[in-house]
Design a protein around this nucleic acid. Structure first.
Lengths: 357, 357
DNA sequence: ACCTTCCACTAAACCGGTTTTCTAAACCGG
DNA sequence: CCGGTTTAGAAAACCGGTTTAGTGGAAGGT
């Protein structure tokens, strides 16, 4: 009654072949240390037994996993529904693959990101959207894992890659102001940053908001508190946010959206309310995902080099991973630029008076 | 000159605390087996030393990694640029996360998918687009790793999730035929299936092609060999393919594209050639990604439940992973359905005569 | 014939934990 | 005060490989 229907171990192969474990290991990893015939014979027996080296066991001695982690403070399901993240992953994957690394996605496990990081068998992580005020940041850093921050640079000891969100946002707002808009609705990405009030001054949302505000203030435009709303980072989120603002009586002539998905959702909501684009309403997005150029009307948006962020982050990470020296962290800031397409136009001369939905 | 600047091991903590390795292990994993004060003291010393259990070492004894692999025959960079895959990942991630599993993406390593699978430390894999005639399929199966196939069901021993591609394609073609189209260009997804001629009868491309052909044949429409072209599965790929067909003198009144991205690319190319949509050219896509409803004109396409495919695949995989019994493989076939939007319309009455670009 | 070198392979240590088995002391009822 | 049960922790085996440090015999040089 042997319940040993397990997978064969190296010792089983060794016994069957009448050699030592060492010889079997050599047959797989350094066949030149064995006579050709022995190596072939051992490998033959191994395959006939269905043996393959246990990947975890070999990881234990080879001190690296050849795997990179992508750390996300949100659930993966949220992340993958975000086209921004798909582009970012593309950049990461491209760089990682070139260098022979695989990718492991790390998201909060049982609610704890630190726990997930602690369990992860990776050589280093690229953390996207992890800011210095994350509640578990200390524990995460305590793992000692090489880490590169993306879209956050408030942990100077870690290399980072950010884009100039503030300048991009400012350009977006200035564009609308030049077109004569004064009643501008800002739709932010919902997240801890907004809901915790003054904390989280370091996130993407805050930087973009600061850019918008700077431009508006410089133009002498008053921005009412309820003209800044939050939305889930999805098309539906944008639709809901615009509908909500509209139903609260707000009648913007332009929308500054913090992501393209939100912008597209807002456009949809506006259409459903009978508004014409960009005649009645101008919309500016952020990110310039592939989608942006293909919607109707093509979306005016702030371009940021998303793929490159991913690729650069991997590059910086590998500097740290591969040379275990105490190298200086590097901080990259990439440019953004406004891409004017068809979703923005001159402000209507008078406040529009369209029928409510 | 001690070059021991390594991370602390469990033995270091044990020595420092004056206890055995066992006690340290207990302090972390089953503190109830220690007196409360001892457990607290040990954990305190551990943190002060910066100790955390080595994740690989603990994987070796806990016989599972709580990680699922997503196996893709193509490079990850290709994969992530495909909106279809983002949706699929979303479904996979959602299901995996609910069950406490993390995700590891496995793509060919140094050109070999089997090598990558062999090295991967996962409890099972979801293989997307891996057909039975993949050159390394035997080696991949030899790993003995639980595996669920998506978009392929020609390995009966493995559970699988497919959609009714053929019926969907047929519906798409019939829709165009009913609108009076007879000159229909088919743009397939490029891949091994097409380039190897008759081999690979099992892939998505072949099933869809069969659906198109069945409908056309039933309507007595002749389909010239050069009216089936291949394109990279991207917007640009679709643009290039349509331009190429046009420059070869083809003048279709409709396009059957095997992915939404290709369809959108073809629409762009058509626009650039001065065609109006759907007046001069009707286009039908496949997949119904989020994007499809938001382009101009909204894309008529074949909907398939992509997220659900991912979620179902994980569900089937976990049945196999968690109960190591010899359970029966399960084969799911999900439905597709045609979504008619604005990109299709009646065929122009006479062959159009538009100026070449 | 003797010493050295090389070859092909083995034994044992090691990677860093977990788990099983065992033991000494404390506890407990009668 | 005695035998039996807990309790708290230690010792050793184990997970499944890789790597280091040998080792015996054959070949080569003189």
């Amino acid at each position: 009654m042997q319940r040993r229907t397990q997978r064969p171990r190296i010792a089983d192969v060794a016994r069957e072949a009448g050699v030592s474990k060492t010889a079997v290991s050599f047959a797989f990893n350094s066949p030149e240390r064995l006579s050709a015939e022995t190596a072939v014979r051992i490998r033959g027996i191994a395959t006939s037994l269905g043996y393959r080296p246990h990947p975890v066991a070999r990881l234990l001695t080879q001190r690296q996993t050849m795997t990179l982690g992508v750390l996300t403070p949100q659930a993966l399901a949220v992340i993958f529904s975000n086209p921004f993240f798909a582009l970012f992953s593309e950049g990461v994957a491209n760089a990682a693959e070139d260098l022979g690394y695989e990718l492991h996605f790390i998201s909060p496990l049982h609610g704890s990101l630190a726990l997930a990081v602690g369990r992860a068998t990776v050589d280093g992580v690229v953390a996207i959207g992890l800011s210095g005020d994350h509640p578990e940041i200390q524990q995460i850093r305590a793992t000692g894992l090489p880490m590169v921050l993306v879209d956050s640079d408030d942990l100077p000891e870690h290399s980072s890659v950010v884009v100039d969100d503030e300048a991009g946002a400012r350009a977006a707002a200035e564009h609308l102001l030049e077109l004569g808009h004064r009643d501008i609705l800002i739709v932010a990405v919902e997240g801890p940053a907004l809901t915790t009030g003054e904390r989280g001054r370091t996130g993407v949302t805050e930087r973009r908001l600061r850019g918008y505000r700077t431009a508006l203030r410089a133009a002498g435009v008053e921005l009412g508190d309820d003209w800044v709303v939050a939305a889930r980072a999805s098309i539906d989120g944008g639709t809901a946010a615009f509908q909500d603002a509209w139903s609260r009586g707000l009648r913007p002539t332009a929308v500054l959206a913090m992501s393209d998905a939100i912008a597209i959702g807002a456009m949809r909501a506006a259409r459903e309310l009978g508004l014409s684009l960009p005649g009645d309403l101008s919309v500016v997005g952020f990110d310039d995902v592939d989608l942006a150029a293909h919607v109707d009307p093509p979306l005016t948006t702030v371009h940021q080099p998303i793929r490159q962020k991913g690729a650069d982050a991997v590059r910086l990470l590998l500097i740290e991973v591969e040379q275990r020296a105490a190298n200086q962290p590097e901080h990259l800031r990439l440019e953004t630029r406004l891409i004017v397409r068809g979703s923005t136009g001159p402000a209507p001369h008078q406040r529009q008076e369209v029928p409510a939905a």
